[in-house]
Amino acid sequence: MDPAPLSPSLPDPGKGLPAEAEIVQGTSLGRDAWLRLRKNRLAIICLWVLVGIVALCLIGALLSKAGILPDANENHLDKKLLPPGSGYLLGSDALGRDLMTRIFFGGLVSFSVGLVATLVSTFIGVAYGAVAGYVGGRVDAVMMRIVDILYAMPFVILVIVLMSFFGSNLILLFLAIGAVEWLTMARIVRGQVLSLKKQEFVEAAVSLGFSHWRIIFRHLVPNTMGPVIVYTTLTVPAVMRLEAVLSFLGMGVQPPDSSWGTLIKEGADRMDISLWLLVFPSAIFAVTLFCLNFLGDGLRDALDPKSSKD
């Protein structure tokens, strides 16, 4: 005989479930977040603007390679510092190079630094934080003291030393920036893992005899993805800024190649006679960072519904 329901107001679980499941469509966390993000009009506009800027840079670079737009690194000393409109849509620089194609190519460099360095830092930070939090004890204490030491060093100085150590090379620039930006991520992931590892599903995994690595990377890390995604989105603009600062100091992208940082630096040097060299790269750089930041905020609200309820 079936046990009587505990309280008459509760539906019988055995009968209610199948019917409920048919009516209520289950939504995954990702889909749920996307639905919430879609309601945030500003974030969606920013997303499209970013897609547009990346597409513009890609298409522009391809057109330049195909010979339809001028070459980005070809000098025309007879056409130096032409203002916008006169043959060049956005003007030309001190060596007669087309500013517009240089912005396109520089954008590709800036975006790839932003993405690759962020991925590097996310990877290091997640792995480091997860291991420290999971192992705990002395290992955790030592690992987090190392993070403290690196925290107490000026970021940019570390990158400068690394760059002078490895030489100025684009791939090493990715790695150097990634190697200093992972600290906060490690702290976030460690905190998450510390609270997650006491939960039953980890106990279950341990009792099933899974290896520590499997538990860390298959069971714990996937559960930290919300904060990780949010912080990753906010790392991209920070990394792009850092690249610009390094290029400004002459330690980032080397000429004749350009990034938005080097273009802004060139513009700032000639601001008094040719303001357009400063205005256009700065404007597109600012718009990009602006959109990345707003998108990151929107993602945070979408992935963490608690913070966005009114």
Partner: peptide, 25 residues
Amino acid sequence: DYVASSLALVGICLPTFVIAPLAIA
């Protein structure tokens, strides 16, 4: 909120080395 948040982002999005020369000028 949008106005205030955008205003706040100006300082973050415009690199210091853009604002500084403009301020000097």
